[in-house]
Structures are given as structure tokens and as C-alpha cells.
């Protein structure tokens, strides 16, 4: 089964953006993680944005995915931000109390469902 199908990566002007969509659970997190990390190691962008505007469900495995990319980016000297988290993502971040750790960027195009 291809677990990368819902991951889209864009790289331009030293900024990499990963668009993750649909459900993020333990089953899907591994494929997303491997897809992102391979490109982070290969391209070494200055900035990495994890866009979660289209995530419809997330549990603590998604939290592990976010915190893991945050840690990897810090190790590689890449500026990390979480971009446009959906309400489902924000709820888990709030429960975990990660708001001081993870920088969140919201652009105007955010869709409020």
C-alpha cells in the first residue's frame, strides 16, 4: 500500500513545504515521516513548513510526527514552522500544551470549516 499518496512536497527559494492531508494516525505517520525526512536530508532547505490545513483527523501519532520533524529540523539547522493547522490538529496541540514549543503560521487562505 502506498502511504505517500496524501503527501505533497514543494521546494522553491530554499523553502520546503509539506502538505499533509486527511487522517493522520499511527498507520499513516510512518510513510509521511519517511517521505518528508528523505527530502529534508537531501535538499537541506533553510525553512521547512508543515502545512496541516487539510488534516481531517489527528491523534497523538500526528503529534509525534510534528514533534519529530521539529527536532530533526533543529538538528539540521532548518527553520521549522507548522502552517495553517486545522481545528482537529489545534485541539491535539492544545491538549499536549505544545504551543510554546512549536511556531504556528497562519496565512489568510485558511479555510474555516
Amino acid at each position: 500500500m502506498n502511504t505517500h499518496e496524501k503527501l505533497k512536497l514543494e521546494y522553491a527559494d530554499n523553502v520546503m513545504i509539506a502538505y499533509v492531508s486527511d487522517d493522520i494516525d499511527h498507520h499513516r505517520a510512518k510513510g509521511i515521516r519517511e517521505g518528508i525526512d528523505a527530502r529534508l536530508y537531501a535538499d537541506r532547505p533553510e525553512r521547512f513548513l508543515l502545512d496541516m490545513s487539510e488534516v481531517s483527523f489527528m491523534d497523538s501519532s500526528g503529534l509525534g510526527l510534528i514533534l519529530g520533524r521539529f527536532t530533526l529540523c533543529r538538528e539540521l539547522g532548518i527553520d521549522f514552522a507548522l502552517s495553517n493547522p486545522s481545528r482537529e490538529v489545534e485541539k491535539i496541540l492544545d491538549l499536549a500544551g505544545t504551543s510554546r514549543l512549536i511556531r504556528i503560521e497562519k496565512s489568510e487562505k485558511r479555510k474555516d470549516k
Binding site: A29, R33, D59, S60, S61, L63, G64, L65, L67, G68, I92, L95, A96
Partner: peptide, 21 residues
């Protein structure tokens, strides 16, 4: 919160706290 036995698997240790809340 944050306790996990699976350190290699990128677990957040938030499973039970999330279930409880």
C-alpha cells in the same frame, strides 16, 4: 503525560492523557 516506553517509534507519550481528557 509524555511517558513512553517506545523511544525509537516517535511516540509522543500522550495517548492515555488524551483518552482521559
Amino acid at each position: 503525560p509524555l511517558f513512553t516506553t517506545d523511544l525509537a517509534g516517535e511516540r509522543s507519550g500522550m495517548g492515555f492523557p488524551i483518552m482521559e481528557s
